[in-house]
Design a protein around this nucleic acid. Structure first.
Lengths: 200, 200, 200, 200
DNA sequence: CATGAATGAGGATTCATTCAT
DNA sequence: GATGAATGAATCCTCATTCAT
């Protein structure tokens, strides 16, 4: 066996994680050029696999997008509640939650931008409306609890969640496209603004 | 002029606004099924024109989307500043601004959903990044002024604008997809929350 | 306009019958290499049209095959009953029917081979089982009538039809692939054999 | 030999007939859904083997189909001449031949349908045209002999063979797809019709 | 201006086949 | 021998766009 073919073989069987490569390539491409411009062929090329290989791991394009989305959602959810054990005051926990969230965003640019871009699209709603409902349960519980204790405004839960997260997400997008830069200070300001808007 | 050609002319006269028909059809279709599923043929059919006719008014699909977007943006801008003449207090004007905005949204579902869906997409960024920057000038002036007068938090302008509008837009989406219903009362609450988050 | 472009344009708009060109090309290709090996691209090439043009006239490949089949079936049916007006004796009409049939086959090699190849395939059954049932009505009436008058064997109609046509079709295939040659004489023999097998 | 490898060997021992499993699965699938819809993967699945295993026994798909076809042809040939030793009268032997044939068909539905479906296709002609010529020798001898003795019509051998078998095969197809039901009586009728058509 | 038949490049997907294990 | 992940050529089909009418 020649040197070259050895390397090729080695690489081939080292790639236990073709699926992850594909997922990563897909998310990055979609962020760069948009879903409509992201063909399966381009994903395969970027992932360094053959076009057909994608179909070893995903049923079709929709299935892939759905799985991408749910995987990202899952990762975000997990990180958000890190260190939140309900033993502290709601305000402290609220601020920790937001810090976790920002932390995740900053360290997972691709995931965040992908998530943000499609969370409200008809497509995602069609593909995984149900699964997403279930996933937000812990978050809704947190706000419900704060509302019951009179710490948050006595208003629709959706309002509380929305006023907490959407401005932050919007700023994160600006952060990533260079229109804005996160700093210790303005992160603190943002958290205060969130708190100001929802506290009773 | 023969009978027949008269009729033809008459029909054509009625069709002076073919362009608007096309734009409306495009926006509605895109909202219903998403951009990826919206073909020029479907737009033409919904607008009641031939496929080729679209190319009389638009250079190509991208050009059409760009023009759709800028037209919607323009309409929103115009409506938002209705009755705002800077003769009143910032707080009153701020609240009027939001009311105008909500008013526009409620009465222009199609425009709003279209705008919201694509305002942050890579596609729109590519197509009309520059034009959109320019369009926000009056709004930025308004907030700049409030900031200088010490009425708004002394923070980045983007933060003020974002905390003012994004939660509202998010709730409007929920309003339209049935997850939330605007009422006099909760509109008032939302405006208060916006105000709470940005006031000094 | 140059000479060349004039010709091109002329040809382009002379081609009112692109659909027929496509159908003919499809039938010929399918006869030559079989259905499985006949791609839409090859059909388009043989018909001298663009690949997409096929989809102007047919919904998809299945729809095309179905329409090919029904068109051929229709043509065969029409030719078979030429000159048959039920004013003559059953035997004379029977022999005329077969002569018509052979005549059609000989003059429409492509149609016949296509028909014969797929008349019994699961695909055709799936695609146009019903339409084919309807199409055979006149033929069945003819045999039913002869049976009632005691001229044909008093047996299942299917047996009469089958013994009349299948050997003939089989010989026609041999005729076309060179294993056999139709002559006035052996055509007469074949008709006699058919008659011998079904007469009472 | 270790416990584990023993089991492996044992299992392998059971799989001596993997080839037959594959062949059977292929024939059945092709009959059910047609050749075009029958992928190697589906055959493997139905046969309970891995996709790659098929290539242990067959060079490629065409080779497999060819071997399927020749195997079926061989089996039919063998059964047809069971009990035919040329010691009896031609008429008796002719009828025995047909009975054997029908018997084989009835008891080997899969083989017959497969054979019948592809015997006349361009594909089979391409794959095993030559081999099939050779296989029909005994049958041709039988008819030649009858012709020489003045028992059959003095016509082309192909006509005799065709009028003997094709109507029968056609009825067998109808039998299997439910349009017709073989009975002692109509089998007798069919044999008589065959005889009537070819006897001198 | 308006039409819509025709185009053909490009996309999603399938599948026969290979090969390290 | 047996496996099945990986391949990539080939297929069906879509759709933005053109252009003679």
């Amino acid at each position: 066996m020649t040197e070259r073919s050895f390397i090729i073989e080695y690489v081939r069987y080292l790639d236990v994680n073709k699926k992850e490569k594909i997922m990563l390539a897909a998310i990055q491409l979609i962020n760069e050029v948009g879903l409509a411009e992201t063909s399966m062929a381009k994903i395969a090329q970027k992932a360094g696999v053959a076009a057909g290989t994608i179909y070893v791991y995903f049923e079709n394009k929709e299935d892939m997008i759905k799985k991408l989305f749910l995987a990202v959602k899952e990762a975000m959810q997990q990180n958000m509640f890190r260190g939140i054990d309900c033993s502290l005051s709601i305000e402290v926990e609220f601020k920790q939650l937001l810090k976790n969230y920002i932390d995740f965003i900053v360290n997972h640019k691709d995931c965040f931008l992908f998530f943000e871009q499609y969370i409200n699209s008809p497509l995602i709603d069609k593909l995984c409306g149900e699964e997403l409902q279930i996933a937000t349960k812990p978050l809704r519980d947190f706000f419900e609890s704060g509302k019951e204790r009179g710490i948050f405004r006595p208003i629709d839960l959706d309002l509380l969640v929305t006023y907490t997260f959407t401005p932050l997400m919007q700023m994160a997008k600006k952060h990533f496209n260079g229109e804005f830069g996160f700093t210790e200070q303005n992160i603190e300001e943002m958290i205060q603004m969130c708190w100001a808007s929802i506290k009773a």
